[in-house]
């Protein structure tokens, strides 16, 4: 039975993490990288929830940690959005290759 085994969930988590890294390297735009970063966070959450259900003596810890990861992900998305907007105002582009100037 797939749904009662810890390894299935760990594999799903690892796969989401891998997809996230894949997208982070491949995407040429800031928003694409933001989307991939959310996938990485989700992979970590799935791992926490799997260990929480199968191995933790206190099964509330993993759920609460996952809730905190969600809150951090929401904060990260808000800040990343404002950075994207600020970058777009300065460069009129959100491609990573165009963002080569530093301003001291």
């Amino acid at each position: 039975m797939l749904s009662t085994q810890l390894n299935t969930y760990l594999f799903i988590g690892a796969m989401l993490f891998g997809f996230g890294i894949f997208g982070l390297v491949r995407r040429p735009s800031l928003i694409g990288m933001l989307i991939s970063a959310e996938l990485v966070l989700c992979g970590a959450s799935v791992n926490f929830m799997a260990f929480n259900n199968f191995l933790a003596p206190d099964p509330t810890v993993g759920q609460i940690f996952t809730l905190f990861i969600m809150a951090i992900a929401a904060a990260e998305a808000a800040i990343a959005m404002s950075i994207v907007v600020a970058v777009y105002r300065n460069y009129k582009s959100i491609e990573t290759e165009d963002l080569v100037d530093l301003q001291g």
């Binding site: 735009s29 928003i31 933001l34 989307i35 990343a80 959005m81 907007v85 777009y88 491609e95």
Partner: peptide
């Protein structure tokens, strides 16, 4: 939020 980022930054 990501939808808003797409609308505000209009990626080419």
């Amino acid at each position: 939020t990501i939808c808003f980022a797409i609308m505000l930054a209009e990626p080419d």
